[in-house]
């Protein structure tokens, strides 16, 4: 009854709307869009060409491999206040110490933590719960800068490399993971902030670019794969190794949002949506980014 009333009122108001003040501008707006020169999607700017050359040269010696090696050492070493190694204590989902294939099967739900976690979040959880490191110490500077690469970055790179050329297989048949996927999808669609942006503003349709940077459409499997491929990645700009969590944060920055908390549900759910959408497609391991 009440709903019907409000509806009626709203309709009436809309119908009786006084418009003359802006009618002309509105009419101008309705003129057919110009048959403008089609943007040349294939054209590449100098920076892109330069980057592709660099990537080709680096094919055989991906700088990510340095971090991979460092990460392997860290994984196997007894460390932290409890002096245990991750290799003997950390279960990435396939059993304690099992690294092969674990990255492409995250995010997943971990009953011992009662949470859905992406690989980076899970490794942090192990460092805190098993090795006794302090979460706040890790979260203070979680990502690499030009002068410092945190251990967690190397660890993630190592774990990711152990899933090279494997198919993405986020366990979406687990209801808790499926729920995380759906919430992640909502987060990706959420528009707010001074520019009304959501992830989908930039990544919701095919063939879009910001300047010359192609934007993957993360709502499609192939687009989502492009958003997963090469992460963690060695970034040419600044010469730093960066993780998928970093990429999410930097996109929220471009979205003019505040900063997502490190290793939080929000980022884990977003990654569940992104990686889950690319399920079944092949992950090629840590890569190089511009």
């Amino acid at each position: 009854m009440r709903i019907a009333l409000i509806l009626a009122v709203a309709t009436a108001t809309a119908a009786a709307l006084p418009i003359p003040g802006w009618a002309q501008a509105k009419a101008a707006a309705r003129k057919p869009p110009p048959p403008a020169a089609a943007p040349k999607a294939e054209e590449k700017d100098a920076a892109t060409l330069e980057f592709e050359k660099f990537r080709a040269e680096m094919e055989d010696s991906n700088p990510a491999e340095l971090f991979e090696a460092k990460g392997e050492e860290l994984w196997k070493a007894r460390r932290g206040p409890r002096n245990v190694s991750l290799a003997e204590s950390c279960d990435l989902g396939l059993g304690v110490g099992v690294v092969k294939g674990a990255y492409v099967q995250t995010p997943r739900h971990y009953p011992d933590a009662g949470a859905v976690m992406d690989a980076e979040r899970r490794i942090v959880w192990c460092m805190v719960e098993k090795q006794g490191f302090n979460f706040d110490d890790i979260a203070k500077r979680p990502f690499a800068s030009d002068t410092h690469t945190p251990d967690i970055t190397s660890l993630v790179t190592y774990v990711a490399a152990q899933s090279k050329n494997m198919k993405l297989a986020v366990p979406l048949d687990d209801p808790k993971v499926r729920e995380a996927y759906e919430i992640g999808k909502e987060i990706a669609a959420y528009r707010a902030g001074p520019y009304d942006f959501s992830c989908n503003t930039c990544h919701g349709a095919d063939g879009k670019r910001i300047r010359m940077q192609a934007l993957p459409n993360i709502s499609t499997p192939q687009g989502a794969l492009r958003g997963v491929q090469g992460w963690p990645g060695y970034r040419m700009t600044g010469g730093v190794m960066l993780t998928h969590q970093w990429r999410m944060g930097d996109c929220f920055r471009q979205q003019r949002f505040p900063q997502p908390k490190y290793a939080s549900d929000a980022v884990a759910y977003l990654l569940t949506y992104l990686i889950g959408t690319a399920n079944g497609l092949e992950y090629k391991g840590p890569g190089i980014k511009r």
Binding site: E186, R191, A266
Partner: peptide
């Protein structure tokens, strides 16, 4: 789900630089 997503957004962001938490709130149009 939308309600859960909103709650997650609300708890999982922190202010940084000029980007305060007020930016997470929607106006009527949003």
């Amino acid at each position: 789900r939308r309600a859960v997503a909103m709650a997650v957004i609300k708890k999982d962001f922190e202010p940084r630089g000029q980007a305060g938490l007020d930016r997470l709130a929607e106006d009527g149009l949003q």
